[in-house]
């Protein structure tokens, strides 16, 4: 996968987030402050724009880092620092390489998870985006260890994230506004886990096409 492939991912993610913004906001309205879709739409829109303004010789790492910076400054809610940190850490992990293989992308995904956990202090089961990211990283690493190619690894990660997001429904929130609701936060999918699954599905879509 090259820089153009990763730029296509950011653009496609912005498109999916925009199309799904109302749904994400509805999920957030049930347990959070009801702005997740709107915030993320603004953040990923800014990311797609920033990535589009890069010169043709930008490395894959630079593309992802640039997207992360735009998301930090333009998103607004907690998802700005969290997704921004995820992308910036992933971009740093990609380094100066011009071609990203399956192992490098896996290391970037793991770095994103580490950044999110360091910043948000969320553990597995707290009903956050971490509950989609952890199964995504383990599914990716499992596929990689089994000798799968990059596209299959990404597909495994996207499926893992989707299952992880589904599994947040019965959980009780222990982070963010939803944690003030105690047992009333149960029975709703976590909006951050849902958007994480969406963004990884965007990566799987462009990887298959590429």
């Amino acid at each position: 996968m090259n820089a153009a492939g990763l730029a296509a991912w950011i653009r496609h993610a912005a498109h999916l987030v925009s199309a799904d913004a109302e749904h994400l906001t509805r999920l957030d309205a049930a347990v959070g402050d009801g702005d997740h879709g709107l915030n993320l739409d603004r953040g990923f829109g800014a990311a797609a724009e920033a990535v589009g303004a890069l010169s043709d010789d930008a490395t894959p790492g630079k593309v992802v880092l640039t997207a992360g910076r735009a998301i930090v400054s333009k998103t607004g809610g907690a998802s700005g620092p969290l997704y921004g940190t995820a992308l910036r850490r992933a971009g740093k992990a990609l380094g100066d390489r011009t071609e990203v293989d399956a192992a490098a992308l896996g290391a970037a995904l793991a770095a994103a998870l580490e950044g999110v956990q360091e910043l948000g202090k969320a553990a597995e089961g707290d009903k956050t985006m971490v509950d989609a990211l952890i199964p995504a990283v383990s599914a990716y690493e499992g596929a990689l260890a089994g000798g799968a190619d990059l596209a299959s690894c990404v597909r495994a990660a996207a499926d893992g994230a989707a299952k992880g997001a589904e599994a947040t429904v019965p959980l009780r929130a222990r982070k963010g506004r939803a944690s003030y609701l105690g047992e009333r936060s149960e029975g709703h999918m976590d909006p951050g886990a849902a958007s994480t699954a969406l963004i990884l599905r965007a990566l799987a879509d462009v990887t298959v096409e590429g």
Binding site: A78, S79, P81, T85, L119, G120, G176
Partner: peptide
């Protein structure tokens, strides 16, 4: 919430 995360990101 996001104030804390924004502060921590700024510090990084």
């Amino acid at each position: 919430g996001s104030s804390v995360l924004t502060a921590r990101t700024f510090i990084e």
